[in-house]
Amino acid sequence: MKKMILVLFSVLLMLSIVAAGCGSGSNTVSVYTAFPEQEVIVYLEAFKEETGIEVKHVRLSAGETLARIKAESSNPQASVWFGGPSDTFVAAANDGLLEAYQPEGVSNIPEQFRDVKKVWTPIYVGALGFASNSEWLEKEGLEPPQSWADLLKPEYAGNVTMAHPASSGTAYSIFATLVQLKGEQEALDYFLQLDENIRQYTKSGSAPAKQAGFGETGVGISFAHDILKPKHEGYPITLSFPTDGTGYEVGAVALIKGGPSDQAENAKKFIDWAISKQAQDLYADSGSFRLPVNPEAKVPEGAVKLSDLSVIDYDAVWAGENRDDLLDKFESYVVGKESVVE
């Protein structure tokens, strides 16, 4: 009997540890983030150092975050959504999943990046680019792609990688950029053709750049900052931009509606901090190559400013509002067709 009591006791003890882990008090904030695992750690540590607030996080790509917030809407588990292109935020805001919040100092940020409905807050910008594996280019005697059309060339067959638009905000931005550039039907035709050259649709938007770095693929389509980071780490990557117009993302942060109530204050503090000079300087200090939206912050060395590129007037709001519709079409037209073609 004594042994039974001991067992029972230890089970209770462990359960109470679990319970303690749950009701973690007000000194934490729970965050869903689309930043790569190793990058986000840097930001969260800095935030903790500055405010003493502990951050719990799960890395989910933008699409996954959206799905999860929807699923959890009756009982949200996190209070902040940190990172990921603004079009997914727009989609979430339209579904009423986000809490409007305008942080201190938001007026410093250029108007063009800001949310007209004042729900989410921009934290970085970056243009879409091509990451080519330099060694591969050399061996094949190829030039890095200079336009969207270049990617359709037979030389690139089986060597183009992008993320899946449904799961990745990056990939959805690529898709939406081409729809805005070419019109819907032509864009769909383009992706149908591109599908022939696609090596793999990854889940996360930054993965194609890394894979290009590895040489797992010839060309990866990603945001410039996701490309520059591995390049800086020593991977043989050549960065190029489509001259026929490229989209850009506005990375965002927002409050999740109905998140854990004891975190509400911390969540706002987190967003305030995210656009502060200290936070925005981290892009440069941590070697992430994201372009800060705070005009006072350092621009990372080697980052390419939007003004140097032929960026289209990317309409994130339109992109966000039409997300479901466009994804359905992509799914049925491109991915669905693929199996027939095969």
């Binding site: 989910l60 699409g63 996954e64 959206l66 799905a67 999860r68 929807k70 699923a71 899946h164 449904a166 799961s167 889940k203 994804l327 799914e331």
Partner: peptide, 10 residues
């Protein structure tokens, strides 16, 4: 998995 987490199509 992709249908649910990516598309939120339960």
């Amino acid at each position: 998995y992709l249908q649910i987490t990516g598309m939120y199509d339960l």
